[in-house]
């Protein structure tokens, strides 16, 4: 083996700064996309369970359309295909303000929103219909029943699959490098190009992704404990006998 390890490439020159910027961009794009995905997922997931067929069809269309096209294609679509359709001033503004970031964020959020949607729908459908009827019976509107009863219960039930989907979103943010968003994977590739130390650069990237994912999983576990529905956890932990 003639390859010579040189880990110092990770902190000499500009590498350290590149990595840091990569992490920040990855977090920025992921957090914004997560919020967008959460909003779209809750909205469309809830709509799919409502007794109003037109809204159900609309939400189903969104989910099937977005989750059945590869994320990479969406990134290209939002970056290359959509901007030319916009008015010229807006195009100019976008390209001066990181159009690739917004296109990437949008693609990521909309794509994962469709996947969140399915998780949220299954959560809502696991709640008995009479729970909803009980809320309606007290005079709440359908929207209020969802807002104060159905969705809060569903969100608490789906934290484990939601964690999984959130990790997928973070990892998929690396696809944005293809439209030159300077996120973490992009930066590790840059270090590799400048130093020709692929192993070190990619190891650094891997370790950072791992650390980010483990942190998210840890935070979600705390959230799950904090918001656990009393009785549900206890019942799982301590079977009756």
């Amino acid at each position: 083996m003639t390859y010579k390890f040189d880990w110092s490439v990770l902190w000499t020159g500009q590498s350290g700064q590149w990595l840091l910027q990569g992490v920040i961009t990855t977090l920025e794009i992921s957090v914004l996309a997560w919020l967008l995905a959460g909003a779209l997922g809750i909205l469309s997931g809830a709509l799919r369970t409502l007794p109003f067929p037109p809204l159900r069809v609309l939400a189903a269309f969104y989910v099937e359309f977005f989750r059945n096209v590869p994320l990479l294609v969406w990134m290209f679509f939002w970056y290359f295909a959509v901007p030319p359709l916009l008015p010229t001033p807006l195009q100019d503004w976008l390209f001066n303000h990181g159009a690739e970031f917004w296109a990437g964020m949008f693609a990521l959020g909309v794509y994962h929103g469709a996947r969140f949607s399915e998780v949220i729908r299954s959560g809502i459908q696991s709640i008995s219909k009479t729970q909803f009827e009980a809320a309606l019976s007290t005079g709440l509107t359908t929207a209020q029943a969802y807002r104060f009863v159905i969705i809060p219960i569903a969100l608490r039930l789906i934290i484990p699959p939601l964690t999984n989907e959130s990790l997928n979103l973070l990892k998929n943010s690396s696809v944005a490098l293809t439209i030159s968003v300077a996120e973490l994977t992009f930066q590790t590739r840059q270090i590799e190009t400048y130093t020709a130390k692929a192993f070190e650069a990619l190891t650094a990237g891997t370790v950072i992704y791992l650390a980010l994912c483990l942190s998210i999983a840890f935070v979600m576990a705390q959230v799950e404990r904090r918001f656990a529905i009393p009785g549900l956890i206890a019942r799982v932990a301590r079977p009756e006998h």
């Binding site: 008995s128 009479t130 729970q131 009827e133 009980a134 809320a135 309606l136 019976s137 007290t138 005079g139 709440l140 509107t141 009863v149 809060p152 219960i153 608490r156 918001f227 529905i229 009393p230 009785g231 549900l232």
Partner: peptide, 20 residues
Amino acid sequence: LRALRAEIGFVFQQFNLYPH
């Protein structure tokens, strides 16, 4: 419909309290 239901209390076999 809201006003109607607000005037009518309904108690279910399965209680259906809000668990959270």
